Computed example of a mutant assay.
Amino acid sequence: MKEAVLIFGGIYGTLAIILGAFGAHWLKSKYAPEQLKSFETGVKYQMYHAIILIICGITFPFLEMMQVLMAYCFIIGTFFFSFSIYGLTWTSSQNRKLKLLGPVTPFGGLLLVIGWILLTINLAEIALYLTP
């Protein structure tokens, strides 16, 4: 699991850079300002979670179910949250907004919140273990 977390962190980080550059240069002329702002939100959250995945991959052994669940929440939540935003902004710019993607974004956000709660619990356990 540790390797998968690090790989997803690296992939999400790489894609965030590519998509951010894509948005800043090519989409700037194709998207309305509101669409571009939404797209940038997806990129930012993707990068934030790429970084936290890499930190978690270095910090945790993923031997406990709570750590594994945390990783899944971050990986799946990032995909649902950011990539649904990309899909919504793209289809909206084509005047064919896919309404079925609408509920996917908050579901991804909920998974990210759960991931952060689990991260906090895991960090608290580490702090308790390290406290003399």
Rank of each mutant, 00 (worst) to 15 (best):
E3G: 08
E3R: 14
A4N: 09
A4R: 06
V5Y: 03
V5N: 00
V5M: 10
V5R: 05
V5I: 12
L6P: 00
I7E: 03
F8A: 10
G9F: 09
G10K: 08
I11D: 01
I11F: 13
I11P: 01
G13H: 06
T14G: 15
T14N: 08
L15P: 00
L15I: 14
L15Y: 15
A16F: 05
A16C: 12
I17M: 12
I17A: 10
I17T: 03
I17N: 03
I17F: 12
I18G: 07
L19R: 06
G20S: 04
G20L: 08
G20P: 04
A21S: 14
A21P: 05
G23Y: 09
A24I: 03
A24R: 05
A24F: 01
H25V: 00
W26G: 07
W26R: 14
W26E: 15
K28E: 12
K28W: 00
S29Y: 08
S29P: 03
S29D: 11
K30F: 00
K30E: 14
Y31G: 07
A32W: 07
P33H: 06
P33Q: 07
P33G: 05
P33W: 01
E34W: 04
E34T: 06
Q35P: 06
L36P: 08
K37W: 01
K37Q: 13
S38M: 14
S38K: 07
S38I: 10
S38D: 11
F39V: 07
F39L: 02
F39M: 00
E40N: 13
E40R: 00
T41F: 06
G42H: 04
G42W: 11
V43I: 13
V43Y: 12
V43G: 05
V43S: 06
V43F: 09
K44S: 10
Y45I: 08
Q46R: 11
Q46E: 13
Q46F: 12
Q46P: 02
M47P: 08
M47S: 08
M47Y: 05
Y48C: 07
Y48T: 02
Y48W: 10
H49W: 04
A50V: 01
A50G: 11
I51E: 04
I51A: 12
I52R: 03
L53C: 11
L53E: 02
I54T: 09
I55Y: 11
C56L: 11
I58R: 13
I58W: 13
I58P: 08
